[in-house]
């Protein structure tokens, strides 16, 4: 088992392999490795990004709790071992590449919002996300308004009217208004990493 894990880690760090699996070219993956190194050594220099390091990168604080940051971290951590390795980092960021298909972005967003991870989004999950949003921002909404927003959400997205949004309904819902519903799913910086970030070196190889 140990050999298998070691091999997997090496493969994940191979820029050519990652380039073939993502929307990044080899130079961009090497540039991303510089960002990864910075994030993964911000608290403990161990070659992986912990949740605290991820929060530090996002918010400038490792203490700030956020439901959405937690969910994004969980989705980046595809092996679900509590840390983000470089391969996981690159593959997850690829979804946020401007060239990634809308359906792929919508799928990631669906999994992000499917808090209970049961394969559909229910009213309780939507309410939990709105409450988290209010808790994490200065926005104040009364209970009745929150319920109106949830009603509106399901009127628009739950086309089958069964009280939950399934992946098919979600894709149709997003396709009707992608600019509003997927606006956080594209990171413009990823379009041309190597010129946007001249401080990122185009190095000969990715070190261990």
């Amino acid at each position: 088992m140990g050999c298998c894990c070691t091999k997997q880690r090496v493969d994940h760090k191979d820029p050519a392999v990652l380039a073939s699996q993502t929307y990044f070219n080899i130079s961009e993956i090497e540039a991303l490795y510089d960002l990864f190194k910075k994030l993964s050594s911000s608290i403990i220099h161990d070659g992986v990004i912990s949740k605290e390091e991820f929060q530090l990168g996002l918010f400038g604080s490792s203490e700030k709790r956020s439901l959405f940051a937690d969910r994004v971290f969980q989705l980046f951590d595809s092996k679900n071992d509590g840390v983000i390795e470089f391969g996981e980092f690159v593959k997850a960021l690829s979804v946020f590449h401007p060239a990634a298909p809308q359906a792929q972005k919508a799928d990631f967003a669906f999994r992000l919002y499917d808090i209970s991870q049961r394969g559909f989004i229910e009213r309780g999950e939507v309410r939990e996300m709105i409450l988290a949003l209010l808790n994490e921002s200065d926005l104040v909404l009364c209970h009745d308004i929150i319920e109106v927003i949830i009603d509106k959400t399901f009127e628009e997205a739950d086309s089958k009217g069964d009280g939950r949004i399934d992946p098919e309904e979600w894709q149709e819902f997003v396709a009707r208004n992608p600019s509003l519903l997927l606006r956080n799913m594209t990171i413009p910086y990823l379009k041309d990493l190597t010129t946007q970030f001249p401080s990122f070196k185009l190095t000969s190889g990715i070190e261990d």
Partner: peptide, 25 residues
């Protein structure tokens, strides 16, 4: 204004998860 939005539009507009900040420091 928020009442005219659905929940997901509200979440997106609030920038609750904006990964741009990973690249801004």
């Amino acid at each position: 204004k928020p009442v005219s939005m659905n929940a997901f539009e509200l979440i997106c507009r609030s920038q609750s998860f904006n990964l741009d900040s990973l690249f801004e420091k």
